[in-house]
């Protein structure tokens, strides 16, 4: 069950987030230095080749703005609705 996968500990979950994003950015940096490897920008350019992919990208962008800036609010002291 997916709901049993994350550790029941905030610190551990935060560490996992840091590791995942650390690996992501490390790989992004590595591929940006090596010409023979596809960078994130190259992947994005390949993804944009199809019209449905471009509209999907635009829809995801619009959803992100709505989700983060209209429907999510932690408040200055973290007391809000998330």
């Amino acid at each position: 069950m997916m709901r049993d996968l994350p550790p029941a500990d905030r610190t551990t979950n935060l560490v996992i987030w840091v590791i995942l994003w650390g690996l992501f950015f490390a790989w992004a940096f590595a591929t940006s230095l090596r010409h023979e490897l596809p960078s994130f920008g190259t992947l994005a350019a390949a993804f944009r080749q199809r019209r449905w992919a471009r509209w999907t990208l635009l829809a995801a962008w619009a959803w992100l703005g709505w989700h983060l800036f209209v429907r999510t609010w932690a408040g200055p002291n973290g007391e809000g609705e998330i």
């Binding site: 979950n13 935060l14 989700h67 932690a74 973290g78």
Partner: peptide
């Protein structure tokens, strides 16, 4: 998973910074 304090999503983490 719940509660969000224990299981932070990306948007819950971002919203703290956006305060």
């Amino acid at each position: 998973s719940n509660p969000r304090d224990v299981y932070p999503t990306l948007s819950s983490l971002a919203s703290i910074a956006f305060g």
